[in-house]
Design a protein around this nucleic acid. Structure first.
Ligand SMILES: [Zn+2]
Ligand SMILES: [Zn+2]
Ligand SMILES: [Zn+2]
Ligand SMILES: [Zn+2]
Lengths: 131, 131
DNA sequence: TTAAACCCTAAAGCATACTATAGAGTCAAG
DNA sequence: CTTGACTCTATAGTATGCTTTAGGGTTTAA
């Protein structure tokens, strides 16, 4: 399978596939005599795995590690795999908390402003940022 | 006031101040005869404004715009200022929603995994990413 | 006088995940 | 035989907010 075909099959674009290869997420495929990449069918499932993992927030580096486990499942444990989701869940929870903190602070100054069309000389948002 | 003093006063470091200057958040200060920057006292409050604005999620570019309004409050309206917090609130809400979507999806696959120390051959996390 | 502490500029590096550009070879159809 | 579609490599650019590096001047206290 040539790269354009693969890209279409998985809904990614060609440069992205070459980029993933450069980052070690996709192993170097065989080459045709003209030098074109020639992917095996498994490349499709590997890329779908990558897509799903991205959807749940994993970085490419993490996905690379997950893929390494996936191809040698027998040599790894559920514990090991679960620690990935554990860590990522903690990260995401922290991000959410941080954003909620920001949101609350922002809402507070937002609601205090009259939003009118008089001059901002008395604006409580600006005052809040000044003090 | 020299840059080191100012940096200490606001708890930022020197390079950051020079960076802010390069980005137009801090106006170019006067120079001493030896070429050293010589900041007026107002630089402190300006930097505190920047810090607070960062804390509620504004980017440097947005802060630059807010500062421009702040120094000419009379020529701007509350409406105008409030639109900044409005937009930012929407952005943050979206980010939170996206993260919560991810979190739910991740929790789902996380809890389905036994987390045991047998081999990952049957791991439901890997299966979830494969299908 | 000399060493530490402070200041200067310009440019590059970092992290992330691509995206774009330049310059060039290959292939199939008309 | 040429045009368009496809592929290749290598390199640089994007966004964000710094941080680091390199290579030098200046000031102050001992
Ligand atoms: Zn008002
Ligand atoms: Zn207002
Ligand atoms: Zn298990
Ligand atoms: Zn498992």
């Amino acid at each position: 399978m040539k790269i354009g075909h693969l890209a279409t099959a998985v809904g990614m674009d060609i440069q992205t596939l070459r980029y993933y290869e450069s980052q070690g997420l996709l192993s170097e495929p065989a080459r045709l005599q003209n030098g074109y990449r020639d992917y095996p069918d498994e490349a499709i499932s590997r890329l779908k795995f990558i897509k799903k993992a991205k959807l749940v927030g994993f970085t490419l580096k993490e996905i690379k590690d997950l893929l390494a486990i996936q191809v040698t499942k027998d040599e790894h444990t559920c514990q090991e795999v679960k620690s990935f989701t554990q860590v990522k869940l903690a990260e995401i929870s922290n991000k959410i908390e941080e954003l909620q903190r920001i949101k609350v602070a922002l809402e507070k100054i937002h609601t205090s402003c009259c939003g009118g069309d008089e001059t901002a000389a008395h604006c409580s948002i600006l005052s809040a940022l000044e003090n």
